[in-house]
Simulated assay, not measured.
Amino acid sequence: MPSARPSLLAPPLSFCKPIRARKFGSLANQSLQAPVPPPPPLPPPPASAAAPPHVFGLEKSQLLREALEKAGPAPGSREDAKRLLKLHKDRFRSDLQWILFCADLPSLIQEGPQCGLVALWMAGTLLVPPSGIPLERLVHMAVEKGYTAQGEMFSVANMGRLAEEALGCQVELLRGGLGGPNKGRVLQHLVSGHPLLIPISYDEDFNHEPCRRKGHKAHWAVSTGVLLGVRGVPSPGYAEDPELPGLFHPVPSMPHQLPSLPEEGSLGAVYLLSKQGKSWHYQLWDYDQVQDSNLQLTDFSPSRAADGQEYVVPAGGVRAGLCGQALLLRPQDSSP
């Protein structure tokens, strides 16, 4: 007979030798009677620091800055002002001589409703040279202090507090508009090379100039220069521009007498050299036009009220927070 094939199954239990538990003292007896409790769970990992609040546009700002840097350096204030004078020469009175006082600012295009913080960042490059305070830090501080929800700034007073806290500069809050006695203070401030932060209504679709929209187009700008129309240029200390006869610049290496400021009501004799977060270039704005625009900031934009976004608006609304107000900023060690 053929031999039986070996089975792949284990032999029946009856053919196996019994296995006896070996005892290792009392511990073995205890282990057979009650299971050893499992080890305690590992402690949870330490909580990580809370992430900073997300603000619309911050993740794009660096990319945008890099793109602008690749496009070439920002035009200087003098060159850009001369470009505007040539482009709109019919707007400037031919019966006056013109003196341009200006300080250079870098440009930064805003993302989202960050116009005020972008304007403060630009001003900061003059107050905390050479590069000011990072925009991300300004936004984080403003959110942390409760001044803003997503970069908007509807309070000139809060903007002044933020400037003091972040830049360590002197801040003077002007109320009652840019006319009357405030006009002389503003012009002296700009002639001295210090920045002015001012809220206006801004029409980016029509002519990129201040307009009257009751605050529906509320926007911030920074002015760091002024173009003054005068009957006569004081001497010495000023040099006529070689390309534009009738335009004069203060000579940095020479002491110069300040010109007589245009009188109140002297139309078309004062222009603010300004920058804001929706343009790469400087703009020359008629002083009276800026003054009128600043005085009619009264209402919150209906489109913003209906967009479902959160905004920080002070008690009393846009009228209480922005209307007729501006900020004069100076380095901490300067005199008014």
Rank of each mutant, 00 (worst) to 15 (best):
G176T: 04
G177S: 02
G179T: 07
G179K: 09
N182C: 01
K183E: 13
R185K: 15
V186I: 12
V186A: 08
H189P: 05
H189Y: 11
L190I: 02
L190C: 04
L190S: 06
G193D: 08
H194D: 10
L196T: 02
L197A: 05
I200L: 12
I200T: 11
Y202G: 10
D203K: 10
D205Y: 12
F206S: 14
F206W: 15
H208V: 03
E209C: 13
R213Y: 10
R213G: 12
G215M: 03
K217I: 05
K217V: 06
H219W: 03
H219N: 07
W220P: 07
W220V: 01
V222E: 07
T224Q: 08
T224D: 06
G225M: 02
V226G: 03
L227Q: 00
L227T: 00
L227A: 00
L227M: 00
L227I: 00
L228S: 08
G229H: 01
G229Q: 02
G229V: 00
G229P: 01
V230N: 03
V230D: 01
V230K: 01
R231L: 09
V233N: 00
V233C: 00
S235P: 02
P236C: 04
P236I: 05
G237N: 07
Y238K: 00
A239H: 00
A239S: 07
P242K: 08
E243M: 06
L244P: 01
L244Y: 00
L244D: 01
P245F: 00
G246V: 01
F248M: 00
H249C: 04
P252I: 04
M254C: 13
P255V: 04
P259T: 06
L261T: 02
L261M: 09
P262L: 02
E263V: 03
G265L: 03
G265P: 05
L267Y: 09
G268H: 10
A269H: 09
V270T: 13
V270R: 12
V270I: 14
L272C: 11
L272E: 11
L273W: 05
S274N: 01
K275S: 08
K275R: 15
Q276V: 02
K278V: 07
S279C: 11
S279I: 07
S279N: 12
W280K: 13
Q283C: 09
D286L: 13
Y287I: 04
D288W: 10
D288G: 14
Q289G: 11
Q289I: 06
Q289R: 14
V290P: 11
Q291W: 10
D292M: 08
D292I: 09
S293G: 10
N294Q: 14
N294H: 08
L297Y: 09
T298Y: 13
T298W: 15
D299H: 15
D299F: 13
